[in-house]
Nucleic acid binder design. Structure first.
Lengths: 249, 249
DNA sequence: GTATACACTTTTGTATCCATATTCAGCGGG
DNA sequence: CCCGCTGAATATGGATACAAAAGTGTATAC
């Protein structure tokens, strides 16, 4: 597989983008609005806690504010933006407690789906999981700041497992949790070493899927989730000043 | 506690209504739109599979279609309505497979939160759970068709347990699953006997919360969920003609 | 009798416009 | 120097208007 992914070029990662956020130029305005906001967030032009620039979005997608507002209502239920009455919308901003809860919810869902995915594994599934694993490795070796991109690929790995379990509700729920963790959490200076560690943990999970007991798979999964959650909470605590600055803005 | 709940009078069950669907007359139009739609569904004036009457809603809440559309976008992400491009919105309609998946997702989440709720149980929690249990009993003894009302109280019982676990994401997720099961599933002729059985199962869960092991609680919960899921799937299969009629309408 | 084409009606999606709430700069008082 | 007030500037939420799409019915052809 030929991979030419740069952190500023989002055209190659459409498969990893949050639902409806892939770019296609001739889609309905509501979808383009969500897509453009996703790009604003991924390129750090809108950071968690900041106002969503409705006029900018409307201007850039060549539409009025009406469909933009509809798109923001869609994202509101997903927990990505919050409506402030008479003051528009802000990109939500997770605090350490939110993250801890989301990670606990991940444990709940991922343990459940991993068991079913193991039972229903196929060659195709293992192949795709391996590909996603290699993409993750590749992205982290690439140049520039590949944090968000890496996180999107990390999400793709976990969501692929959920999808193999076959329950669309749990898959969607997990996907949404990742979106919130990726898009509404400050990630400047998040340690890349932790992401490399995650790649290694994914390798172990992959091995357990290929040949391992349920217990071993669960243990590997829990290591991945626990380590990730701990790293994020630690990172957020050490950078709580960021959040305050962003909120006053 | 004085209870005067009738199936057609929704003013007393605001605590049980889906998020933002309580009626308050002076709320923003977006919320009133969602509230009025909820009433339309609960009173069977809009049934699963049917078109959402945007103009009627706008007229009845005294607003234009703009906020109504925003409300429908909110409900779209929740899976309650679906947008058909250039053909408006329809109330979603679950099929037997959807229900089976939702029940499996309930197992996933409810087992997880029951454990935490048991660990964190308080007198207040047990008291509220007991009250919800008695309301359920009361509702089923009442006159008229109390199916949807009973289901809303059933939801309140389970969601209260999730809330005790303390994880807002899992609580919201479970709440949403119930909303979908209650609002977007045909329930004409659903056996009231099954609902009475559920009351008994709730009594057992309550007893296990008050004094019981985790294993016993889990067993009681699983009985409740398994029996409920089986009853619904059986009911839906025996009434699949309803669905077709509704869809062609 | 059935199918197809076409004009007409209705509905939808969005742009535009406007009333209202919020924000902010400038000002005066403490 | 800091605080709160006042009015202008701005942003927001929603009503209205309009173009385009879907739906409906009728007439015509086969």
């Amino acid at each position: 597989m030929q991979l030419a992914i740069s952190p500023e070029d989002f055209t190659h990662l459409e498969p990893f983008l949050p639902k409806g956020m892939a770019g296609g130029a001739s889609r309905p305005p509501v979808e383009r609005a969500a897509g453009y906001l996703a790009r604003l967030v991924l390129s750090h032009r809108v950071t968690p806690g900041q106002k969503v620039p409705m006029d900018d979005i409307a201007l850039h997608i060549g539409a009025s504010r009406t469909p933009v507002r509809e798109a923001l209502r869609l994202l509101e239920t997903e927990g990505l933006v919050a409506a402030l009455p008479n003051r528009g919308f802000v990109l939500r901003r997770l605090d350490a407690a939110d993250v801890a809860h989301l990670y606990d919810a991940r444990r709940c869902i991922e343990l459940f789906v991993a068991k079913q995915a193991l039972e229903r594994r196929t060659e195709g599934f293992l192949g795709e999981l391996g590909t996603l694993h290699r993409i993750y490795e590749h992205v982290l070796r690439g140049p520039g700041d590949s944090r968000r991109l890496g996180m999107l690929v990390d999400k793709a790995f976990h969501v692929r497992i959920a999808r193999q379990a076959g329950n669309p509700h749990l898959t969607a729920s997990l996907s949404n949790m990742f979106d919130r963790l990726i898009l509404t959490r400050p990630i400047e200076d998040f340690p890349l070493d932790r992401m490399r560690e995650a790649v290694a943990e994914h390798a172990e999970m992959l091995a357990r899927f290929e040949s391992g007991t349920l217990g071993e798979l669960e243990a590997a999964l829990m290591r991945n989730i626990d380590n990730g959650g701990a790293a994020i909470v630690a990172h957020m605590r050490s950078h709580s000043d960021f959040g305050i600055a962003a909120r006053t803005q």
